[in-house]
């Protein structure tokens, strides 16, 4: 397919999504409030369990391999928030078009349908970068979180997880057009990821059968690397095995996402599910 049917459309979809989201004035408010408030609950839970003088930290340190529970929890929560927002914005992009009543109209255009998901996903990634920065800045200012890791390594790790994330969101978007609803799917997926990847607690507390699955999920490796870079100041080379795994699984997920998308767009055309809600 010629580039004019996917390259500029991807950019246009991204621009359109950013324009629409930012035209709701409350967006700016939620950008500043949610990322500040949400991890705060977990911080206070951690504080409650550890005690003000840290007398209860021994167990946590043994399980999480760090006594810096604030950084551990805030980083895990930031990853959870990032996944969560991207599932709602990128993964549900087609379902949202359907609810807006735009889905079938867009379908009749010669644009590559994958551009619709990609554009929305990129918009989501861009839009949600700001809340992450706000959250980090807030907790750094409070002194509960220290930005001490190598920024380049953090950005490189985020870049490496992108193929997996984009592939996953494409697969997710494909599922939503077939299932014609997404809320339940988002709830289940984000809860499962949160538990299995140990985003808000040390993985060591999970039953062995569940923690065995954790190692197969690239997101577990991702959050482990991010925590390692920031909390333990490990270099990237410390995580070579995880990095290779993230790259390979990212490629596999991208291919799976694209194939699933192609399958489902034909499936919904056959079943008459393109239109409707």
């Amino acid at each position: 397919m010629q580039a004019r049917y996917w390259l500029r459309p991807t950019f246009s979809v991204m621009l359109k999504e950013i324009r629409i989201v930012t035209r709701y004035r409350t967006w700016l408010l939620s950008t500043f409030i949610w990322p500040v408030l949400y991890p705060l609950t977990f911080y206070f839970i951690g504080l409650g369990l550890s005690g003000r003088t840290g007398q209860g930290l021994g167990n946590f340190e043994r399980l999480a391999n760090t006594s810096d529970f604030a950084s551990f929890l805030i980083l895990g929560n930031l990853v959870w928030m990032f996944i969560n927002i991207n599932l709602w914005v990128g993964g549900m992009s087609l379902q949202r078009e359907r609810l807006r009543g735009m889905f079938d109209t867009t379908w009749t255009l010669p644009v590559n349908k994958l551009s619709l998901v990609m554009g929305a996903t990129f918009a989501s990634l861009l839009l949600n970068f700001l809340p992450m920065v706000v959250s980090i800045a807030f907790y750094a200012a409070l002194g509960v979180f220290k930005i001490t890791g190598n920024i380049f390594n953090i950005l490189a790790t985020i870049f490496l997880i992108m193929p997996f994330l984009v592939g996953f969101l494409t697969l997710f978007a494909a599922l939503t057009i077939r299932l014609r609803q997404a809320n339940l799917t988002v709830q289940v997926v984000r809860s499962v990821l949160s538990i299995v990847c140990g985003l808000q607690f040390p993985l060591a507390i999970l039953p062995k059968k569940i923690s065995a699955i954790s190692g197969y999920i690239p997101l577990t490796h991702f959050v482990d690397i991010i925590r390692g870079i920031i909390i333990h100041k490990h270099p990237l080379s410390y995580y070579t095995g995880s990095i290779v795994y993230i790259i390979v699984s990212g490629i596999v997920m991208m291919i799976t996402g694209i194939l699933a998308f192609r399958y489902f767009i034909n499936n919904v055309r056959k079943r008459g599910l393109v239109a409707g809600y």
Binding site: Q2, R4, Y5, R8, P9, F11, S12, L15, K16, R19, I20, R23, Y24, R100, M102, T106, L109, P110, V111
Partner: peptide, 18 residues
């Protein structure tokens, strides 16, 4: 798209028409 103006809508669709 109701949150876009007429020009933005037409540019958006123009792009999707290639």
């Amino acid at each position: 798209f109701w949150k876009l103006n007429v020009r933005e809508n037409l540019h958006y669709f123009g792009s999707l028409y290639g």
